[in-house]
Design a protein around this nucleic acid. Structure first.
Length: 865
RNA sequence: GGGCGCUUAGCUCAGUUGGUAGAGCAUUAGCCUUACAAGCUAAGGGUCAGUGGUUCGAGCCCACUAGCGCCCACCA
């Protein structure tokens, strides 16, 4: 005999019990011996380990778990790993603040150094070696990961923890570096020195995918240029006058009649007196500003593009730290007609940041500034995590080719099924808008290094043309700590020796390989084949251009394949003001107290109500509804199981029975419909629709069906009527538990273990209900009997309520005025209705011809007998 | 400037292939009823953003308009 359910449902104790049960019994483990067709593979997003998780994480990770739990109950072998994204800038930033340290590659390594965190002590910032800094990163991320893992377990994410990885661990670094070497081998990666978008605070290159526009105040400065060997002048309207010294040309649209006579001539820049060519260029728009603009090295991406197809030299005046570089006019490429004057003017702005220099420019320009400065507001490109505008600075970087692969990327994007479908257009938009190759290198410390060294020529120059790549079997390598083959560590950074590539890879270089990291691409071919392409990539829609995009780029370059068959995009959590909840906005809610107050199942319910791609407002009310459903399910289960306990019979023995009473048959028919619908919905990743239908019928079950059959189930004598009720109760509870198991894993497991489950058999494996289970049930005489009974019950209750009587108050007379069809149906379920209504006389029908109207007249007894 | 989505009850949202507008919450009134007071029952509440079209019939299909949100864009 099973153990009885406790009187009250204490979610905290029960969650703890099942969390450890699932772990001990390896309920969620992947079986590597089962074939691909029986396996469902998830490319779990590795959460960024920087501080704490908020409800937004809980929300989207639950969505994946719902889908996974459905697939597992369908009998699928589940591959559901968890990774930690602990590589990259967010971690660096957090470590810098947490331990008050900075990485300085010039500082020597200290083996006995330990990072220390003291929230009160505002000690001076300590500069540590790269190795020490990486150790500090590892220490802090491990600490955070334990906290995350705890939360995921409590939330009942059914991941296989033996598949855990971190994007900075040895295995991930190896795969990242192998990916890079493969890209190089296939000609998809290359290094070059070229103007690159540069963040002056982080002092690193950044990629197009990391750009963000910010609206900034700016101002048009109208600057007068002279035409060489002529008295003519023209004006250029610019918001970046501080780049005047970097001007290499002025351009206007080829069709612009105002400037056509000047093409081919030279202009003379004011103040610095440099001769620059006047040329036609398609990107100049006649109706913007004065229609003629200066090309500076470099003000924006168009300057870069234009410069690339020109043969003009770069006049770089902004340095890596963002300040205006020292420049000497008179030395190429800064040729001036008046070096002395130019140098003097430049001294005024040298060493300043662009913003400061801009302020100073009116003074420097003097009479060359025409009219008033006109304020404007315009979008300026920023690194998404940066505080100051980007600059274009020529540096040596590694790039991955994407520009020549747009068509193929779009084809592959179309081969993936997007949920919801319309999110695909964001991917296509992004690919079509690509205007640069993927900048792959970063000038940072905590990341995956490039497995590359360069020879140092005898004159001390680095020979970038002949890179030395690591051997695949040696990966991962750190070129700053290890010497390449055929060299010795003593030859590092000396003429005739070698130097290590100092950069690390873009964080997406690793994240884009999550499928290959977990499939052990290149290491275990069998395993890779068994898992790739994967079934599902879940992620946020804000990182389609980064994570989804780069993952597709990699699988295209490596195997000309899609990485997964489906991609599911979760929406965002909005705060009550409808703003996206995010750490940077400081409006996050942490999930700990929610889980405690509303239970994990209650919080999961809240997540499950939101369809994919739909943003959801954070709303306490929905958590309450979730908790209420959990309590209801528990209590209804207790009631149903009590019927079997009372008779000392096993509810399992009723599951194969056929119901004989019409109301029972009708309810089972409704239940079968929901089973079919829910299965279809889950197949299409629409867990929310499945939940809604299930929940609706479950409340009908509690509010109406249970009330209708209660008395019949209570009967002391065995009878076909009682057997039919008991069978329907057993079947319904059994099916409801399984339908709700993905959303409410704890309470369903608890009830299951006390009812239908056998020893160590979790509800979460191999138990999804099917319509075949209903094949031995006979159809009710009419469809919709349950609906008719509901309508009758509702009206009877209404009559009692408006008479301010209790619901068990006896009914003397029950008249039904309705169509013949309605009356017929009511008659078919009459006995249950009369019992539930506490009515001793039979229904008095009045048949209305040609009328849809239904009137139920309830005459209550005078006395409560 | 290009693209996508949303607009249904006070709030949060459903609304399957077109067929009499739904749920929960909130509000109000009532009820200790042999599972449940962390409960139960019922009531009130809507020009489905607007305009036009297709149709016997439109919340749903089509066109246009407005507001909100998001994604993208070469931003002088």
């Amino acid at each position: 005999m099973k153990k009885e359910l406790p009187k009250k449902y204490n979610h905290l104790d029960i969650e703890k019990k099942w969390t450890s049960f699932w772990k001990e019994n390896k309920v969620y483990d992947w079986d590597s011996t089962r074939p691909r067709e029986e396996t469902f593979v998830v490319d779990t997003p590795p959460p960024t380990v920087s501080g704490s998780l908020h409800v937004g994480h809980v929300f989207s990770y639950t969505h994946t778990d719902l889908i996974v739990r459905y697939q597992r109950m369908k009998g699928k072998n589940i591959f559901y790993p968890m990774g930690w994204d602990d590589n990259g800038l967010p971690t660096e930033r957090r470590v810098q603040n947490y331990y008050r340290i900075r990485c300085d590659p010039k500082v020597p390594y200290k083996s006995d150094w330990e990072p220390e965190h003291d929230p009160k002590d505002k000690k001076e910032i300590e500069h540590v070696s790269r190795q020490n800094f990486i150790e500090a990163c590892n220490k802090l991320t491990h600490k955070d990961e334990e906290v995350f893992k705890e939360l995921w377990s409590q939330l009942a994410l059914s991941v296989d923890w033996s598949l855990e990885y971190a994007t900075i661990d040895k295995h991930s670094r190896k795969i990242s570096q192998a990916s890079f070497l493969d890209l190089v081998k296939k000609g998809h990666a290359f290094s070059t020195e070229s103007p690159t978008m540069w963040d002056i605070d982080f002092q690193s290159a950044i990629a197009q995918a990391e750009l963000e526009d910010k609206e900034l105040d700016g101002a048009y400065h109208d600057i007068q240029f002279k035409v060489a060997d002529s008295e003519k002048t023209f004006e250029i309207s610019t918001t970046r006058p501080e780049l005047l010294a970097a001007c290499i040309a002025v351009v206007a649209h080829p069709d612009d009649e105002r400037y056509q006579p000047l093409f081919g001539k030279e202009a003379i820049t004011p103040i610095f007196n440099m001769k620059v060519p006047i040329l036609p260029a398609d990107h100049a728009e006649p109706d913007k500003g004065t229609g003629i603009l200066m090309v500076c090295t470099f003000g924006d991406i168009m300057d870069v593009e234009w410069w690339k197809q020109s043969t003009l030299p770069i006049r770089q005046i902004i340095g890596r730290n963002g300040r205006l570089l020292p420049v000497t006019f008179g030395e190429a490429p800064f040729d001036s007609l008046d070096n002395e004057k130019a140098n003097k003017a430049y001294k005024e702005i040298e060493g300043l940041y662009p913003k400061q220099a801009r302020k100073k420019m009116p003074e420097v320009l003097g009479a060359s500034l025409i009219g008033e400065i006109r304020p404007t507001r315009h979008p300026v490109k920023f690194f998404e995590k940066g505080d100051r505008p980007l600059e274009f600075i020529p540096t040596r970087q590694w790039f991955v080719r994407v520009m020549n692969h747009k068509e193929r990327l779009i084809e592959l994007g179309k081969q993936v099924t997007w949920h919801p479908e319309h999110m695909y257009s964001r991917f296509e938009n992004w690919v079509n808008g690509l205007n640069q190759e993927w900048c792959y290198s970063r000038q940072r410390f905590f990341g995956v290094p490039f497995p590359v060294w360069y020879p140092v020529k005898d004159d001390g120059e680095t020979d970038y043309e002949n890179p030395i790549f690591a051997k695949e079997e040696d990966l991962p390598v750190d070129p700053l700590a290890e010497a390449p083959d055929s060299y010795d560590e003593s030859q590092r950074d000396i003429p005739g020796g070698f130097t290590g590539d100092p950069d690390v890879m873009d964080t997406w270089s690793t994240s884009s390989m999550t499928p290959q990291i977990v499939s052990h691409w290149g290491i275990n071919t069998e395993r890779h084949k068994q898992l790739f392409p994967m079934d599902l990539r879940p992620q946020g829609h804000d990182i389609i251009r980064t994570w989804a995009f780069t993952t597709i780029v990699k699988s295209m370059h490596h195997e000309d394949s899609i990485p997964w068959h489906n991609i599911c995009l979760s929406g965002w959590i909005l705060d009550p003001d409808r703003k996206k909840m995010s750490k940077s906005k400081g409006n996050t809610v942490t999930p700990g107290h929610l889980l405690e107050e509303y239970s994990s199942d209650g919080v999961r319910y809240w997540s499950a109500r939101a369809r994919l791609g739909t943003d959801t407002a954070f709303d306490d009310q929905v958590f309450k509804v979730g908790r209420k459903l959990v309590t209801k399910l528990f209590n209804a289960s207790r009631f149903v199981l009590q019927q079997f306990e009372r008779l000392e019979v096993d509810p399992n023995s009723y599951l194969k029975n056929s119901a004989s009473e019409e109301i029972d048959k009708s309810f089972l028919e409704e239940l079968e419909k929901v089973v079919t619908f829910a299965g279809k919905s889950y197949e299409n990743f629409d867990y929310a629709a499945a939940l809604q239908q299930t929940e609706d019928l479950f409340w009908d079950f509690c509010d109406h069906y249970l009330e209708l059959v209660k008395v019949r189930a209570y009967e002391d004598e065995e009878s076909p009527e009682r057997e039919s009720a008991l069978s329907t109760l057993a079947i319904s509870l059994n099916v409801f538990l399984r339908l709700l198991a993905p959303v409410l894993p704890y309470v369903t497991e608890e009830v299951w273990s006390c009812s239908f489950g056998t020893e160590n058999n979790s509800i979460h494996k191999n138990n999804w209900p099917t319509s075949e289970e209903f094949s031995n049930q006979s159809k009710p005489l009419e469809e919709g009997l349950f609906e008719v009974a509901k309508k009758m019950m509702s009206d009877i209750r209404g009559a009692k309520t408006s008479a301010q009587k209790s619901l068990k108050w006896p009914v003397e007379k029950l008249e039904v005025k309705a169509s013949e069809s309605f009356i017929n149906k009511a008659k078919m379920v009459e006995s249950d209705i009369l019992r539930a209504a506490n009515c001793s006389s039979s229904i008095e029908p009045t048949s209305l011809k040609n009328s849809e109207a239904i009137e139920i007249v309830v005459t209550l007894a005078k006395e409560n007998s």
